[in-house]
Design a protein around this nucleic acid. Sequence first.
DNA 1: CGGTACTCCTGAAGGC
DNA 2: TGCCTTCAGGAGTACC
Length: 283
Amino acid sequence: MPELPEVETTMRGMERAMKGKVVTAIRLNRKTLRGAIPADLPASIGEQKITRFERRGKYILAFAENGRGFCLHLGMSGRIRIESAPDSFTKEKHDHVIFEMKNSSRVVFNDPRRFGMLFSVDAENWRNHDAFSNMGPEPLEQDFSGRALHQKISGKKTNIKAALLDQSVVAGVGNIYACEALFGSGIHPARICASLSLKDCNALVDAIQDVLRRAIAAGGSTLRDYRKTDGDLGYFQHQFEVYDRAGKPCPGCDCDVLKTGGVGRIVQSGRSTFFCAKKQKAK
DNA sequence: CGGTACTCCTGAAGGC
DNA sequence: TGCCTTCAGGAGTACC
């Protein structure tokens, strides 16, 4: 499930393969993913040098010398596979888009569940696109602070877990890192946003930034689908404290798991939330 | 407009 | 062994 750390890792891989290099062709093996794949993409980017990459939330943007670019989202099963030379080329099920580079390498967008997206952007005005016009702050940038978060959610009646998944509150956080950050800050996932103090929000922002930084350093988390662009696995999943650990003890736990049941699992907005009832008080 | 439920899709995993 | 059901979830849409 690609969230910010997996998307960042993927973008860095694409950057190594494409930045400063010329795209010779783009092969579209299907017309749609989540939405329509722009048919004019090969014409606008083809024979152009890619000059710049950017990540915004869970989206990866790439811009060519002519100011045109593309934006992709990995959905939940999307993967970028980089094949450095023709002798390493493979054809796999669900290879939907293939970027062919002038140095004979290929960048392949594979996505079994087809929740991914690919659309055209311009360097000039991409921020006006629907995907970004209402997007919240980048969690690792200066403008994301406890004060800003507190202000943003203090009027909300929904629970804090749902708010963290809302990309207009903070960009790039998904189910895994929302659970981990709530655990890290000792905040119960069912707490109503409006009940969080500034102190809570400061702790939460610290925890979000900490878990995202550690996950990026580990190359992201591999559960089922995600791989790095070279095919390697991320390894942050070994550092999960609560996610997917229902019934197990959380790190440093001194409770008797046989009595407490260990890490708890509840369902919020149709999604699994993992937490420790002892360390994350409902209040 | 805020909040919630539902939808898209495939493959893995579990039950019988 | 094999078929069936359930589950995973990001983001958009429908609806109250």
